[in-house]
Design a protein around this nucleic acid. Sequence first.
DNA 1: GGCTTGACTAATG
DNA 2: TCATTAGCCAAGC
Length: 129
Amino acid sequence: MNVSGTNRLKSGEPRALGRGFNLRVYEVVRQIPSGNVATYGDVATMLGSPRVARQVGYALAALADPTVPWHRVINAQGRISHRGDLIRAESQRRRLEAEGIVFDALGRTELSNSRWRPEGLPAGDVTGG
DNA sequence: GGCTTGACTAATG
DNA sequence: TCATTAGCCAAGC
């Protein structure tokens, strides 16, 4: 059937926070400077495990802190993930555009131009610069 | 302790 | 470019 559940969270509200991992995610995301974006994998890597990219997105989904620039986190395809909530994607895109991020007609952005590359990440492409 | 869910990623057709 | 498949990990009940 469909692995992408549609009405799994019957509660309607995000799962409670207060866990270590989630807090770690927020700390990393808050380090993303304005005008830059990072992928879930990047944030996960900062946490020490690039495998937890899912948890990164999941943590942001349950985010309840306006001080966290969750909108600066997008997927590796340079696209915004909304998982059904267009409102969320719209708001995210608006915020990014306000910071200088440019989106393509397909709703994608050039990570190579605005991707956040902290000293922690093993940056590989620095051609052009 | 085990099962289910999930804002992901990479590879393939 | 989109859809499908497989993998990894954490949170919640």
